[in-house]
Design a protein around this nucleic acid. Structure first.
Lengths: 197, 197
DNA sequence: CGTCTATTTGAATGTACTCAAAAGCGGTGG
DNA sequence: CCACCGCTTTTGAGTACATTCAAATAGACG
């Protein structure tokens, strides 16, 4: 299962088997049950989190007590509270496991050591962050230019698997709308597609 | 003026004077007049863009013909259409100079060469993208949790200088609201602060 | 099964937008 | 120096998209 991480590294950079082993040996494989938290608000995120199996959401709670999902992550993804991890300060996010999951935890200090000893890892994360940043740009662009119905259609089309695996209320939160409204949208789309037959 | 770039590099990574010179020699210093475009929709962004002086906005136009500002950048910032630059494909963004500006242009191929010959630059951009990503997270978090009035207050507080230098309609677009509505918000805030005297 | 959570539905409400028009502001040329 | 033009900002009225609240229904889990 750990090959997922090796595969991810090899996709973006050239590492020897020994280097990969060294990195893997500094990660701790951990299982979480559905509903449990890897990180809570106020925690300092000590670890980078790489998902080997399962599904995770990260969200924060605003001053009105409403949850807003920042990220949904599944197999092969890095997740977490980046600001908290980068600066080793208390964070604002919760990272909750929404399916029984197995993750690799990579402690902050170990990552710093890896950066220092295996420069190619700088390249790996440079590319990862660059891609993540561009993807985020795209998401923001969609949020700005589309209404709620089209945001959901776009999500369903590009994340078909997540649309199946994740409860609607979480998808609504990720897309920035209320759960009730998403329900109404889905009904509207059902009627529309029925009309074609 | 070019020291701005050296300063930016040195803040995040250790580079020799020779390496900095080499990087600088591969950049092309270019002046743009207010209202001119560095990149247009459909262009392949050939250059990384670093601002030495002036002010730049990047935006896209949605299917309804409305502009949405993605980024506002000033002295010491990298700007541009990252997706287009990274993948060397036609982009969706316009990059427009909104004050007479001087920028450094770093061609894509030169940057690849720099990555290959000066590994510390991987680290520089890794950190830059990591910070940019975290900042973007924060912006999205604010967009989700605050109403229009509080988004403007947050912007004014953390970007006081930009609030002065940039026309209101651009700020409105950056904050995801109509220019008219921002005008109404400012009036409301004026009245509120007056009432305190 | 029974309980707890998630989803659906409807009615009332609100935040922010659109459209239209007036007022303000800055630059340019006579 | 003033007059005019274009662009930005302000203001008001009407509107729409999405929310809130409340209640009913359906589903999941022990």
């Amino acid at each position: 299962m750990e090959e997922l991480l090796s595969y991810s590294f090899r996709k973006h950079t050239a590492l020897t088997a020994g280097e990969l082993d060294s990195i893997l040996s500094q990660c701790k494989k951990t299982a979480y049950k559905k509903g449990h938290f890897i990180v809570r608000e106020g925690d300092v995120s000590r670890n980078g989190i790489f998902i080997l199996k399962g599904l995770v959401r990260s969200y924060f709670i605003d001053i009105n007590g409403h949850e807003h999902i920042i990220q949904l992550g599944m197999e092969g993804w890095w997740v977490g509270d980046l600001e908290s991890f980068t600066n080793q300060i208390p964070g604002k996010l919760y990272v909750e496991v929404i399916e029984d999951s197995i993750v690799l935890l990579l402690p902050y200090e170990h990552l710093q050591h890896i950066y220092a000893t295996i420069p190619a890892v700088e390249r790996y994360f440079r590319i990862l962050f660059q891609n993540a940043f561009a993807a985020f740009h795209k998401r923001m662009l969609e949020n700005l230019s589309m209404d709620a119905e089209h945001r959901y259609i776009a999500f369903r089309d590009s994340h078909a698997e997540m649309d199946q695996r994740i409860p609607q209320k979480h998808i609504a939160s990720y897309l920035g709308m209320s759960a009730e409204f998403l329900s109404k949208i889905k009904k509207r789309l059902m009627l529309k597609s029925k009309r074609k037959f």
